[in-house]
């Protein structure tokens, strides 16, 4: 069982909604990322998405896009992110999900990526621009190495597509709360809950909801409705503006999730 599967079993046992925290690895430099991850774990993060910067991130808003530019400029590439993962693994067993685009992974090579990622202590991978139609080889190589493959499901996805997303996903399914790019917003879209219901009718896999979640109120509105919430841009923004307050910032976001065990 992967660390991701174990996490969701534990969350179920604790009757608690998990916190998935994204950061762009290497922003502002590769040396600081493992420290940020440690802060996020202390604040209550249950799973870390390690964003591998890509020069042309079509699914991301300006906050993550600019973080990626900074990270690339600071010398971050996929190999460096795997080294950061290994560094995190020296002191932590928190599940780690690589979060990136296809081209850096293609360039690295799927076989090599699966092997090196596994060795570095990565638990799974999400490539935002890989549709299930194009995912066959990628999924096979990752699964053979014992890595989870997480796919996105969107409010615009047809039921037929949701079925395919469920089939190709392992670990959990990442639900996109709205049509749009990553970034913060005021309200969690009204399209979010119908998507949860449609997905539940298709799969027993845990569901995580992301895109636009940036305040404790957003988190509270999703607690108990999905297995985990994902916070990305708000964390990246906090790291950029004042990383010394990262732990407190994320602790506040985790507040509404504190279950009976906390």
């Amino acid at each position: 069982m992967t660390r991701i599967a174990q996490l969701f079993e534990r969350l179920r046992a604790e009757n608690r909604t998990g916190m998935i925290a994204y950061l762009t690895a290497g922003d502002p430099n590769p040396e600081s990322t493992a420290g940020f991850v440690a802060s996020m774990e202390r604040a209550g993060a249950d799973l870390i998405e390690l964003g591998v910067p890509f020069s042309d991130p079509i699914a991301d808003g300006p906050v993550i896009q600019q973080a990626g530019d900074r990270a690339i400029k600071a010398g971050t590439n996929l190999a460096r992110v795997l080294a950061i993962a290994a560094e995190i693994r020296q002191t932590s067993q928190i599940p780690l999900l690589l979060f990136t685009y296809l081209n850096p992974a293609l360039r690295y090579g799927f076989e090599r990526l699966a092997k090196d990622a596994k060795a570095a202590g990565i638990d799974g991978c999400l490539l935002t621009d890989v549709s299930v139609e194009e995912a066959g080889e990628y999924v096979k190589v990752m699964r053979d190495a014992g890595l989870d493959t997480v796919f996105l499901a969107a409010p615009t996805s047809t039921d037929a597509r949701l079925k395919l997303v469920a089939e190709y996903s392992s670990g959990f399914i990442y639900l996109v709360s709205r049509t749009g790019i990553t970034g913060e917003q005021d309200n969690i879209s009204s399209s979010a809950m119908p998507l949860v219901d449609r997905m539940r009718a298709i799969t027993k896999l845990p569901l995580a909801m992301g895109f636009g979640i940036s305040t404790p109120a957003h988190v509270a509105s999703l607690a108990g409705k999905v297995e985990a919430v994902v916070v990305g841009s708000a964390i990246v923004r906090q790291i950029h503006s004042d990383s010394s307050k990262l732990e407190g910032f994320l602790r506040d976001l985790c507040g509404p999730l504190a279950g009976p065990a906390a």
Partner: peptide
């Protein structure tokens, strides 16, 4: 092929 975020798959279809 078709390499886009899932949100765009249905509109492309």
């Amino acid at each position: 092929g078709r390499y886009v975020p899932e949100v765009l798959m249905s509109p492309l279809e």
